[in-house]
Simulated assay, not measured.
Amino acid sequence: MKPVAICFVCLGNICRSPTAEAVMRAQVEAAGLTEWITVDSAGTGDWHVGEAPDHRAQTAASRRGFDLSGLRARQIAAPDFERFDLVLAMDAANLAHLRQLCPPALRSRVRLLMEFGSQPAVNEVADPYFGGGEGFELVLDQCEDACRGLLARLRPGLAGETA
């Protein structure tokens, strides 16, 4: 089976998408699937390119054992739609932007991360940028849940794994 490459995307790549990247990476490592699943993140905007994730995101993630310190923001680029099997948006606005950028033949790769979450009524990862610390905790809760669901969905097709 072919390895799976996933890119998580939010607006600036400093809060939600790097959190999702770190959460998914940790879950993939814990499952022993690092040779089968690779993860990255990006933003649809270019405001924070080269910057570390928001210090509030780093602090909240660190309390749960996730390290965002080595990540740097980047903007999604045309080659990413070929490179990644899944391009997972954090919200509907970024999903719409990604679909505009993505070649029509690859649009099935562009989806919402929360499609894999356990709460069908929750469609988007909440944007914590303009709020307090509790928003970053909610992002972690949502990312942990959706990444668990994503990993469960991917596992049966990887290395002969069964769910």
Rank of each mutant, 00 (worst) to 15 (best):
L138E: 15
Q100Y: 00
P128I: 10
E144C: 06
I76Y: 01
D54I: 10
L140F: 02
T59V: 14
V122Q: 15
N123Q: 15
L71Q: 15
F130Y: 15
E144L: 09
G135C: 05
L71F: 14
D91R: 11
L68F: 04
E144R: 10
F66C: 05
L154H: 00
A146Y: 10
L88E: 07
A126D: 10
R16N: 09
L113G: 10
E21T: 11
L138W: 04
G149P: 08
A31Y: 07
A159S: 12
S69A: 13
P156A: 10
A159D: 06
F116C: 09
G32S: 05
G50W: 06
V87C: 11
C7K: 10
E124V: 12
L112N: 09
A57W: 02
T38V: 04
L68S: 08
K2W: 00
C7H: 03
G135V: 10
V23L: 05
A93K: 11
D40A: 15
T162S: 08
A126M: 10
A52S: 15
V23H: 03
F84H: 09
S62V: 12
G149F: 05
C102D: 05
R99V: 01
I14C: 02
E144T: 07
F116R: 10
H55L: 14
E161P: 00
A152I: 05
S41Q: 14
W47I: 07
Q58P: 06
R155S: 13
F116Q: 06
T19V: 15
G135W: 04
A77L: 13
G133I: 11
D46M: 06
L98W: 03
T34D: 10
R153T: 12
A30C: 07
G131T: 13
R107M: 03
A126W: 00
V110T: 04
R64D: 10
K2L: 04
R25W: 02
A159I: 02
G32A: 13
P18M: 07
P104Y: 02
R72H: 11
Q75P: 02
E161L: 03
L98I: 07
C143E: 07
L95T: 02
V39S: 08
A163G: 05
I6E: 01
D46I: 02
E137L: 07
E137P: 00
E51S: 13
D40E: 14
V110G: 02
R25G: 03
A20L: 12
L113Q: 11
A163H: 01
T44D: 03
M24S: 09
S108R: 13
A30L: 07
D127A: 07
G70P: 01
L154K: 00
A93I: 04
I37W: 00
L86G: 05
G70Q: 06
F81I: 12
L71W: 09
C15N: 06
W36R: 14
A93C: 01
T38R: 12
G32T: 14
T19E: 09
A152H: 12
S62K: 15
A20F: 06
L151D: 00
V9Y: 00
F136W: 10
A121K: 13
A152Q: 14
P79A: 14
P104R: 13
D67V: 12
R109N: 06
C10Q: 01
D127L: 08
K2R: 14
E82I: 02
F81V: 11
L151G: 02
R72C: 08
Y129W: 15
R25N: 09
L68V: 13
W36H: 14
C102S: 11
L95Y: 04
D85T: 05
L95F: 02
